[in-house]
Design a protein around this nucleic acid. Structure first.
Lengths: 193, 193
DNA sequence: CGATTCTTTGAAAACAGTCAATCTGTGTGG
DNA sequence: CCACACAGATTGACTGTTTTCAAAGAATCG
C-alpha cells in the first residue's frame, strides 16, 4: 500500500528516489477493521497518519453523551488530532474507521527527522497544516451563516467523496443538525429534483 | 509602540538584542481610527500584523448582505487572513478597527527573511498558526454542539477581554445567532444572576 | 431469517429569526 | 446647556425552522 502514498506524494512534491526510500523505511502500514478506533480519548496522538484506503471520522462526545463529528477522512487524506500531537497532551477526541481501511503511519520523532532531512517534506507538511486551517475557516463561516439546507448542499458539493460513503446521521452531526432534519431536507431535495 | 511588541515577544521566546533590532528595523507602525479598515475584500493580504493596542474584527458578507464575524483581535493578538496570505489571492474578508488602534506590521517578504535569519522566530510563527488551528477546532465543536445560550456563556468565559469591548451585535454575528436572540439570552442571564 | 443499525415520518414542542417599535446612551452642533 | 441625531440594545408579537419523541420502514449482515 505504500505505493498509494508514493503516487500521492510525487503528485504533490518533487522528491528523489532516495528520499522516498527514507520515508518508506520509516513508515508502518496498518490495517483497521470497520468501527475499529485508531485514537481513543485520553490517549496522546503521536503519529502522522495517511489514509491509503478507507474512511475515518474524528468525533467527540458532548456533555449529554451525543457524539459530534469534527472531521472526516477518506483515501489520500490525512487524519490527526493536531492539538494532541502538538502539545503532547491527552486527546479529547476519538478517531474511528468507518470501513475497512489501510493507513500508513510514521512516529512523530521519525517524521520530524524526515522533515529535517528533506526540506521539501517540511514545506509540504506546513502547507498541509495551512490547508487544514483554511478549510476550518470556511467551515466556521458556513456554520455561522448558512441555514441547515445550505450547509447540506455545500457539504454535498464540496465533499462528494465523503458524502457518498458515510452514514447520514454522521453527516448531520458534522453539520450540527439533527438526523431527522437532514432526512427531511434530503426529501425536499429529491422531490424538487 | 514597538516596546509593546518587544515585551510580548520576549515573553514568548528567547531572543537576542541584535535579532530583536532586526525585527524592529523591518517593522512599520500604523495607526487606525475607529471603523477604519486595514483589509478590504478583493485585496491581497501581504503583511503580518500585530495589534499593539486596540481592537479589530475580521468579517465577511453573506449572500443576503448581512455580515458575519469570523474573528476578533485585541491587544497582543495577531490579526490576518491566512488564506489570502498563503495563496496570495484576493481576500474574501474585511478587517476593520473597532476602536482607535495601533498595529505593528511587517511585509510578507521581510517577515520571511526574518524567519530565515532567526530560527526561533520561525518556530514561533509555526506555533502561532498551530494555536490558531486548535482554536478553530474548538470553535467548530462549540458551533455544532452548543445551543445559543451555551455558545454565549462559553464565549464570555473564554474571551472576556473581547466580550467587554465589542458591540453585542458583533458577538451575535460571531456566534451565528441574531442580535435579538443574544439580547434575550443575556436578559435571562442577569435575571437568574 | 432475525437482529441490528440506519433512515424516514408524523405530530407536538421548543427554539431562534424577523419585523417593527421603543429605549438608552453618546456625541454633535446650535 | 439643550435639542437632536444616531448607533446600539431591548422588547413584543409573530412566523418559521429545528428539535424531540415515538414509531415504523429500509437496509445490512451474520
Amino acid at each position: 500500500m505504500f505505493k498509494v502514498f508514493e503516487e500521492y506524494l510525487r503528485q504533490k512534491i518533487q522528491i528523489s528516489d532516495e528520499d522516498l526510500e527514507l520515508i518508506r523505511a520509516a513508515s508502518i502500514e496498518r490495517k483497521l477493521r470497520k468501527w475499529q478506533s485508531i485514537l481513543h480519548e485520553g490517549e496522546i496522538w503521536r503519529i502522522n497518519c495517511f489514509i491509503a484506503s478507507g474512511c475515518f471520522r474524528l468525533y467527540r462526545f458532548g456533555e449529554d453523551g451525543t457524539d459530534h463529528t469534527l472531521r472526516f477522512g477518506v483515501d489520500n487524506w490525512w487524519i490527526s488530532d493536531q492539538e494532541s500531537y502538538n502539545n503532547e497532551k491527552p486527546s479529547e477526541y476519538n478517531i474511528e474507521a468507518l470501513a475497512g481501511s489501510t493507513v500508513i503511519i510514521w512516529d512523530k520523532e521519525k517524521w520530524e527527522a524526515l522533515m529535517s532531512a528533506i526540506p521539501a517534506l517540511k514545506l509540504f507538511t506546513e502547507q498541509l497544516l495551512a490547508r487544514g486551517y483554511e478549510a476550518s475557516q470556511r467551515r466556521i463561516f458556513s456554520l455561522i451563516s448558512y441555514s441547515a439546507e445550505e450547509k447540506y448542499t455545500e457539504f454535498q458539493k464540496t465533499y462528494p467523496s465523503v458524502f457518498n460513503r458515510v452514514p447520514l446521521h454522521m453527516v448531520a452531526s458534522y453539520l450540527g443538525i439533527s438526523r431527522e432534519t437532514l432526512s427531511r431536507i434530503r426529501k425536499e431535495f429529491t422531490k424538487h429534483k
